[in-house]
Design a protein around this nucleic acid. Structure first.
Length: 409
DNA sequence: TCTGGGGTCCTAGGACCC
DNA sequence: TCTGGGGTCCTAGGACCC
């Protein structure tokens, strides 16, 4: 390495809460410890019924087998997460609730409670920020933290600071997490999976061949099912095998950008910084219907849902202080194929009626013979309301300036 | 009885401008 | 006078992630 002698090693941590939703629920209902518990549902009438079904049982509990008897039942819920005890039965996230009910009828079903998870999410992130100020938010249960210049961040390669953060989070919330510390985000993310739950893993540059190369390519954040399948067809299973390929070969098979990225990833190279703040690119709302709807036959119902989605997006924009000028829709048909349409306005907006009107124009561009299972509304090309207002103030002088220049030319 | 919701980023073609 | 390339915006689809 050509870095100056006294320069500290770059030490990036990835912290991942252990079984976050399930752990929060177990904090609230310790009686459920050790039992198969499934968290899911997520469809409004059902969730209401689920909460109403509490009766003699503690809040909102029912065996999953009772689920189909709930008012508003549509059978369309999926599992968001399952406890280890439930996983023993073969239940996994994204599985349909009915399939889970077959696998383990006595499993306890809890409704998803995002407000509670957000509360714990804010708590653990606030604790990290007190200890290490350079944190990147990666969703409700994950963060990256730059340990490089934090006091103690270099001790034992980051292990000492990782332990301190784990303890602070556990003391304040009762929740455990797993931490990986490595020279960059890519490796830290992989390392945080090494010793789950409540574990710490430290990776140095020299550990690449021993610790990273034996892993499946799928373990690289960014290689999903499709890329993995293609790699397998090319005879590549492990990261070691990926690392043996020439960059040109990878670019030929996966494109310039992806090929070069794969080459770097396989060699443990990742120069992405820890990003402290970022602004949203788009805001959307979508919903899967309780039953498939037909554009003509269910016109009124569909129209009401469409309008509600637009109003929700408009509210979200206003609440977060954004305006957008690309209005888009998403449809999913009964065969699960989806299409999108969008259009860009001359000016930004957060007006529900404007969004509704242009979303409606988008909808007119889609043939609607097939039944629909999902409808979504999105607003993109965002800017903050504040920026937008400044822009408007400058509009008049700018036009004057342009006119003046036209005259000059 | 299949398959939620909210995001980001990339690609690729066409329009349009210089 | 067809001949070229670069840049940006728009739109549609898809992979991937939490």
């Amino acid at each position: 390495m050509s870095s100056p002698l006294n320069a500290p090693l770059r030490r990036i941590a990835h912290l991942d809460m252990d079984a976050f939703y399930a752990s929060v629920e177990l904090l609230r209902y310790p009686q459920l410890k050790g039992l198969p518990v499934v968290i899911g549902g997520g469809r409004r009438p059902q969730d209401e019924a689920l909460k109403a079904a509490q009766g003699e049982r503690p809040p909102h509990w029912i065996p999953i087998a009772d689920f189909p008897r709930l008012k508003g039942y549509s059978g369309r819920g999926v599992i968001t997460t399952a406890t280890y005890a439930a996983r023993q039965f073969g239940i996994g996230s994204a599985m349909g609730l009915m399939k889970a009910a077959k696998l383990c009828p006595e499993a306890i079903l809890l409704p998803v409670d995002f407000a509670a998870y957000r509360h714990y999410s804010r708590s653990f992130k606030a604790i990290i920020l007190e200890i290490a100020p350079l944190m990147e938010d990666r969703g409700i249960d994950e963060v990256y933290v730059d340990f490089t210049l934090v006091p103690g961040g270099q001790r034992e390669g980051g292990r000492v600071l990782a332990r301190l953060i784990q303890k602070a989070i556990f003391d304040a919330t009762g929740l455990t997490c797993s931490v990986g510390v490595a020279p960059n985000k890519l490796l830290a993310k992989m390392a945080s999976e090494f010793n789950k739950p409540n574990g710490i893993a430290i990776v140095f540059e020299d550990d690449l061949e021993n610790q990273i190369w034996p892993l499946a390519c799928r373990k690289i954040n960014g290689i999903g099912p499709k890329a993995d399948e293609k790699l397998q067809q090319l005879g590549i299973q492990t990261i070691a095998e990926l690392a043996q390929k020439e960059i040109d070969w990878l670019m030929d098979h996966f494109g310039q950008k992806t090929g070069a990225w794969m080459f770097d990833a396989a060699h443990g190279i990742d120069t992405r910084p820890v990003v402290l703040e970022s602004e949203p690119v788009s805001i959307s709302r979508e919903t899967t219907f309780e039953r498939d709807l037909h554009a003509a036959h269910d016109k009124a119902e569909l129209g009401a849902i469409f309008t509600r989605l637009c109003e929700q997006v408009a509210q979200d924009l206003a609440r977060k202080g954004f305006v957008g000028k690309t209005i888009g829709i998403k449809l999913r048909f009964d065969d699960f194929k989806s299409v999108t349409r969008d259009l860009t306005l001359p000016d930004h907006t957060f007006d529900a009626a404007v969004i509704r009107h242009h979303a409606g124009l988008c909808l007119k561009r889609v043939p609607l013979q097939q039944r629909l299972r999902l409808l979504g509304v999105r607003v993109g090309s965002l800017m903050t309301l504040a920026e937008h207002q400044i822009g408007r103030k400058n509009e008049a002088p700018l036009q004057q300036l342009q006119t003046a220049m036209d005259l000059t030319i």
